[in-house]
Simulated scan of single mutants.
Amino acid sequence: MLAATLAALTLAAPVGAARAAVTDAFYDRVFMLAAHQKCDLFEPKLIAALDAAALQARGAALRAGTPAADLSAAAARARSKASRTACDDGDLSRVRARVQAGFVGWSRAARMSFPGDRSAWRGDRYEGEATGWRLVQDSATGGSPVRFGLVGTGPKITVPTAVVSFVGGPRPYAARLVMRDREMAPRVWLTGGGLPPESVRRVFFAGWAHAAAPGLLTEGARQGEAWIFPAEAANALAQLDPRETFVIEFLFRDDSVASARFEAGDFAAGRAFLAMGAI
């Protein structure tokens, strides 16, 4: 009755898999989350893992061409199935045991990559005294490397940050993160692979900037500036469609703008991976 694909709890679902396979994986993971909510099946770390698995399965299904409406319908069926399944159901107990066994095997993974269409988020659950990237994606503006993600000394206390290493010339006086405003434009924007019109964009300005710690710089960079964004920016980014893009813009006093484009990708799944805690 219940699919056994959860046994391995594989977070890296293949993007090129058939629509049915990735949709089934999403269904399975939503079912187990709903069953846990009803029957209290798993420990918190395993629930964080299932959250990450469900989010990445959803991203893989969208990238494979599954309509968002079909995924919403699959999630509704999964929750309905869970509501009708008894907590002492034999099949549910067997799948629960396989999920727990699979979790033990990879719960020690400190680092994980979350590939997208063009770019990847890299998650890091190591905890140390030095400031470092917990979740990061690389981009560039012109010849200057730019990184954006979550910075912290541990995976649970993180700050949305952009780090740029401009080569010579003046420095920007401000930085802003630009994405689709989900309230003003509820439907995903994929036209041309860029941002929607300005009237339906949401903008977050960095609150302050400082010299970037060495561990935040790209390889070979000797200096850089870290621009700190509000936590609300990360929450908004996690709600974007994984196929969408967002932009970090650096503003200069001569009215010029330097832009670095990023992919929303599996940012939400990466945050769920960090929620598993430090290693």
Rank of each mutant, 00 (worst) to 15 (best):
F205C: 04
A258V: 06
R243P: 07
L177T: 00
G207M: 10
A260E: 08
P196T: 06
A175M: 00
A213P: 01
R222F: 11
P197Y: 06
W227C: 10
L216P: 01
T191E: 15
D254Y: 12
R253I: 08
A212W: 00
F205S: 11
T218F: 09
S199T: 15
Q239L: 15
F252K: 05
D181L: 03
R261E: 13
V257E: 13
A209R: 14
A264Q: 07
D266P: 00
W227H: 12
R176D: 01
R180S: 04
E183T: 13
G207Y: 02
T245W: 01
A185G: 04
R182W: 06
G224R: 01
A226M: 04
R176Y: 01
W189P: 08
R222E: 14
A233M: 02
P242N: 10
F229W: 03
A209L: 07
P242V: 10
A212L: 02
M179F: 00
G194Y: 07
N235C: 07
V257D: 09
L195K: 02
S256L: 10
A236W: 03
E263Y: 06
V203R: 08
R187T: 12
A174H: 08
W189R: 03
M184D: 11
Y173W: 09
A233P: 08
L237E: 02
H210S: 13
A238M: 00
E263W: 03
L237M: 05
V200M: 04
L190N: 11
F262I: 06
R261Q: 13
V188R: 12
S199K: 15
R201N: 07
P172S: 04
V203I: 15
P197N: 10
F246D: 04
E225M: 14
F246T: 10
W227G: 08
A238L: 01
R201A: 00
D181Y: 08
D181Q: 06
E225T: 15
A175K: 00
W189A: 05
N235L: 14
A238H: 01
Y173Q: 08
Q223I: 09
D241G: 06
V178C: 03
A233H: 02
Q223T: 15
D241L: 10
V200N: 05
G194S: 14
E244L: 11
V188S: 13
F205R: 14
P186W: 14
L216G: 03
G224T: 07
R253M: 11
V178L: 04
R202K: 14
Q239C: 08
E244R: 10
W227R: 10
F250H: 03
F204M: 05
I248Q: 02
G194H: 09
